[in-house]
């Protein structure tokens, strides 16, 4: 199989979203909405499958082990963090516990702690805005927020977050008051940070479930505010 057939990533199944540009033999783009192109397995996917079969055959891993890991990874989503933030907004006692004993509180709340790393929770207020970056790589609380977005891993974000954080936040739609102190928090391999954004006005009496819908991922990284009610 030639390399140019290898269009996809590690577990490429050949499926393409219907919006993907597809060309006919004359190079004219056209699409087949809803149709799955059957392009077959790429080189890497074939290699991965072959290795998987061998590892199972030799007893290095169990039959369903890879599926279990994929299943576990798929449970790492930003709504985990949003649940914690919404509860902290609603319950002052929980808020204090989450800020003072974050790891224990995360576990007690039924979430998986970060692998090999501590978790620290920081709270944004009208006076202080915490904004998280990992200048050296992409350290991120994946158990609570899912995999980091591409921009978080980009060289541009990793450098500009420390040299011009307010400009970056402004591009994410957050215009901070000059008097609000910005604290850029540079992560390392042993710690992960979760930010509690400010609770939006006009949400008195909202349930935790309703509040959680306002807690967007970027607000828990500290680059933007929680979603204003009615703007979602």
């Amino acid at each position: 199989m030639s390399e140019d057939k290898d269009r996809g990533g590690f577990f490429d199944t050949g499926w393409r979203p219907s919006g993907d540009v597809h060309r006919d033999e004359d190079g004219r783009p056209h699409d087949h909405p809803g149709v799955r192109e059957d392009v077959g397995l790429g080189v890497r996917a074939s290699r991965a499958l072959a290795m998987h079969e061998l590892l199972v055959e030799k007893g290095v891993i169990g039959e369903g082990e890879v599926d279990e890991v994929i299943e576990a990874v798929s449970k790492r989503v930003p709504s985990n963090g949003a649940t914690l933030v919404a509860k902290a907004w609603s319950d002052p006692e929980f808020r204090t516990k989450l800020l003072e004993h974050p790891k224990e509180t995360v576990i007690e709340s039924g979430f998986v702690p970060e692998h090999n790393a501590d978790i620290i929770v920081l709270e944004n207020t009208p006076e202080v805005q915490h904004m998280v970056v990992c200048t050296l790589c992409s350290c991120y609380p994946t158990q609570l927020l899912g995999p980091p977005p591409d921009w978080y891993k980009s060289f541009s974000y990793r450098s500009r977050a420390v040299t011009e954080p307010r400009a970056v936040m402004s591009e994410f739609g957050l215009e901070l008051d000059e008097k609000t102190e910005v604290r850029v928090v540079d992560s390392n391999s042993e710690l992960r940070f979760l930010v509690i954004p400010r609770r939006p006005d006009g949400t008195d009496g909202w349930s935790e479930e309703q509040l959680a819908t306002l807690v967007n991922r970027n607000s828990m990284i500290g680059v933007s505010a929680a979603t204003e009610p009615g703007t979602d």
């Binding site: 609000t180 910005v182 928090v185 390392n188 042993e190």
Partner: peptide
Amino acid sequence: PESQSDKLWID
């Protein structure tokens, strides 16, 4: 270029 009170935290 930004606010004089801004800080950076690192462990």
